Computed example of a mutant assay.
Amino acid sequence: MTRHHHSLGLTMTWIGQLLKSHFLRILGNHDPAYIEAILNGDSLCALAISEPNVGAHPKHLSCNAVKQGESYVLNGEKAFVSHGPYADRFIVLAITEQTQARKHFSAFLVPANSTGLQRMPPQPVKGLQPSSHCNIVFTDCHIPAATLIGTAGQAFEEISLPMRTLEDSLMLAPIAGAMQAQLDYLAHASSASSKPFERNKMGVLLSLTESAKELGIIAASKLDQHEGIPDLTPLIIGFRSLVGQAQTMLFEFHDEYPGLRELAGDIQILNNIGRQATAARTASLCDRFLAEQRK
């Protein structure tokens, strides 16, 4: 798909909408017609987790929802909400309970036209078009209790954590598709040049790209084979290494073949997304390996 339309941002948007409809379905959303509207492309849903200056780290989030009778009152601000400027509903994670130092989050499906919800101006972002971002502010935003998604107090475990792994895993194959698009362009452009591209380098790039594509397919198939979400850290890390090698090789040709540059920018953005979470999983992988060696 990405290989043919050359837009990682479009593919990311499509996968993101599929994932949101997936979570709405498995977590017992009460509006199946809205899920159908997302899948038909008639509605756009946005996920609001991150907050200004703190990102998505649960210890630092402060947006809260206080229950009042048959409704909740939302207060706080969400930052860098993907598709926020045009979404008609938001999946919002907010604190509904706090015990000692631990915050418990719940998720709500909030209509964009809710009283007390304000969209801030869109934020200019380079790359990944047509993705768009903005902050949203909640000021005494009253929402019905029926907008609750999933288990109260468990939204971080039910949505945020699995979403990161699913996005990381399902975007591997599209990134490989963008790499294939780069090589398609390079083959056409170099054939018209007086200086054909070196065959050995092209062979290495084809090998790296094909290996990346296979890792993307394997990651997706492993998700299909498990009821839960498996730890795909080794595949993700291996994939990113292959992508890094290929983009390093291609970098020296950006001036000679400028069509490589735009796709390279999008590839780099996606290859770097979630690196902090991946680093934590990598450290855990190391700890398990060392523990096994000590047995």
Rank of each mutant, 00 (worst) to 15 (best):
L290R: 07
C286P: 01
A283R: 10
T282Y: 04
A279V: 00
P258D: 10
I269Q: 12
N271D: 06
G265L: 05
C286R: 14
G274Q: 01
A264K: 06
T282D: 07
Q276R: 14
I267P: 00
R288C: 08
R281W: 01
G274N: 00
C286K: 13
R281I: 00
Q276D: 05
N271T: 08
I269G: 01
S284H: 12
A277M: 01
E262H: 13
Q268F: 13
A264I: 06
A279T: 08
E256W: 03
T282N: 06
P258V: 08
I269R: 06
Q268I: 12
A279S: 11
L260C: 09
E256V: 06
Q276C: 01
L285K: 03
F289T: 08
G265E: 10
I269W: 09
E256P: 04
I273T: 12
F289H: 09
Y257N: 13
R281K: 10
E256Q: 13
T278E: 01
D287A: 04
G259E: 09
Q276N: 11
I273Y: 03
I269H: 10
Q276M: 10
T278I: 05
L260Q: 03
R275C: 07
G259C: 07
I269C: 05
A277K: 02
G265N: 12
T282V: 03
Y257D: 05
Q268R: 14
G259M: 07
Q276Y: 07
L260Y: 01
Q268L: 12
G259D: 09
G259T: 09
E262V: 07
A264Y: 09
E262L: 12
S284N: 12
C286F: 13
R281Q: 01
R288K: 15
I267C: 06
Q268N: 15
Q276W: 08
I269S: 11
P258M: 11
L285E: 04
I267S: 01
L263A: 12
R261Y: 14
R281P: 00
S284F: 05
G259H: 11
E262R: 13
A283N: 03
R261F: 13
A280V: 04
L260H: 12
Y257P: 10
R275G: 04
D266G: 09
T278M: 09
I267T: 02
S284Y: 11
C286N: 11
N271W: 00
C286G: 05
N272W: 08
L260R: 02
I273W: 02
T278D: 06
G259W: 10
L270W: 03
L285D: 01
C286S: 10
N272Q: 15
R261H: 15
I267R: 00
A283Y: 09
L260E: 02
L290Y: 07
P258L: 06
N272C: 10
G259F: 10
R281M: 03
E262Q: 14
P258A: 08
Y257Q: 09
I273L: 15
G265F: 11
N271H: 07
Y257A: 05
L260S: 05
L290C: 09
A279H: 06
A277G: 00
R261A: 15
C286Y: 13
T282S: 08
T282G: 00
G259N: 12
L270Y: 04
E256R: 10
